[in-house]
Nucleic acid binder design. Structure first.
Lengths: 177, 177
DNA sequence: ATGGGGTTTTTCAAGGAGGAAACATGGGCA
DNA sequence: TGCCCATGTTTCCTCCTTGAAAAACCCCAT
C-alpha cells in the first residue's frame, strides 16, 4: 500500500512518467528497497482508474506523463498526515521461523540462531560502511538516504540483540549445560 | 514466501487440514501476524501442485487432510537450514514516508515524527503489557509467543530511537531555532 | 422436530506484486 | 551508412494476497 502513496507523493512534486518515478523513488530511498518497474505501471493504472492521477499525454520524447489530480493531492495529504498504522505490522519472517522452530522438535534452534546472527552482523557492517560513505557529503539531498540507512542499522541492531536474547532463553530452557 | 514454509513446517509435525493450520499458526506466533484463511487454502493448492504436500482424503468429520511429502520435508529442512536472506528486506513504510517527506516541501516532517513517535510509544506499552501477562506462566509452549513479543518490542524500541535521531537531524538541518 | 444464531470450514473473485520479455532509442565503430 | 550493444521505457503474464461470501455444522430455546 505504500507504493501507491509514494508514487502520489512524487507526483505531488511535479508530473512525471513511469520509469522516472522508479528512478526517483530508488534514489530518494537509497535503493534500499528496489521498486519493481512493473509495479510502477500497474499502480499508475490503478491510480488513474481511481481518479487520483491523470494522463497528460506525451511529452517531447513520447513519454506518457502522469500528473496528480485534486483527489490525489487530498489522498497524499492524508497519507502524510496519518501515522503509520501498527494494526498489522508486516510479517517478520525471522521471528516466525524461530517461533515455529521452537515449537517443533527436530529443528536445531541453536544453530539457526547462530547462522542468523552471523548474517545480521555482516549486514550491519555493510550498512555502517555505506553510511560512512554517504555521510562524507552531507548535502540536504542526501539526508533522506542517510536516514534510511540509519533505520536499517537500528533495525538490524535490534535484531542482533533479539537473537542474543533468544539464545539466552534457549539455554535457560534446555538447562544450563 | 514465509507462509508457504510455515505451513510446511506445521505439516511436518503431523497432517492437518486448512482451518486447523491457520489456528495453529496464529497460536504459535501469538496472533501477532494474522493469517488470512483464504491464503491458507490457495497456498495448500500450490503446495500440492508442486508436490510438497498431498491430500490424504477426508478424516472422520469430513475435513480434507493434507500431509507432507518427502519433497516437502526436504524443502522445509532447507528453509530452517538457510538463514533469512537480507537481500531484499521488507519495505519499511515509515522510513519510506519520512524519506519522501524530507525531499518534498510542503510536508510537516516535524509533526509527522511527533505523531509517529506517540503511536510507537503506545504500541510499545501494549506489547510490554502483553509480555508481562504472558510471562506469568512460562510453560515451554508459551516460549514462542514470548519471543515474538520480544521481537516486536525490540523493533519498536529501535523505531522510537530512530525517530529521535531523525528529529535531532531535522533540527540540525533547519538550524538551531 | 425446528429454526435461529453462532462457530467452523471452504471457496470464489478481484486486486496487488514481481519477473522477464518486448520495444524503442541513441551512440560507438566497421 | 549500417550494425550492434547499452540503456531507457513499457507491457505482459504469472503468482501471491486479501476480503467477503458460501456451505456445513452445532447448540439450545421453542
Amino acid at each position: 500500500m505504500s507504493i501507491r502513496h509514494s508514487l502520489l507523493a512524487l507526483l505531488q512534486d511535479r508530473p512525471r512518467y513511469g520509469y522516472q518515478l522508479r528512478i526517483e523513488f530508488e534514489d530518494r530511498t537509497g535503493s534500499s528497497w528496489p521498486l519493481n518497474i512493473g509495479q510502477v505501471y500497474t499502480t499508475l493504472d490503478r491510480l488513474e482508474r481511481d481518479g487520483l492521477v491523470q494522463k497528460d499525454g506525451a511529452d517531447g520524447e513520447g513519454h506518457i506523463i502522469y500528473s496528480i489530480t485534486p483527489a490525489g493531492l487530498a489522498e497524499v495529504g492524508d497519507w502524510f498526515q496519518a501515522p503509520v498504522g501498527r494494526a498489522n505490522p508486516p510479517r517478520n519472517e525471522l521471528a516466525i521461523k524461530l517461533a515455529l522452530a521452537l515449537t517443533l522438535p527436530a529443528v536445531d534452534v541453536g544453530g539457526l540462531i547462530q547462522a542468523q546472527r552471523a548474517v545480521s552482523i555482516r549486514a550491519l557492517q555493510e550498512y555502517t560502511k555505506s553510511r560512512r560513505d554517504a555521510a562524507v557529503n552531507p548535502r540536504p539531498a542526501d539526508m533522506a538516504k542517510l536516514l534510511v540507512l540509519d533505520s536499517l542499522i537500528f533495525q538490524t541492531e535490534a535484531e542482533v540483540r533479539w537473537l542474543d536474547l533468544c539464545e539466552a532463553r534457549l539455554m535457560q530452557l534446555t538447562g544450563p549445560a
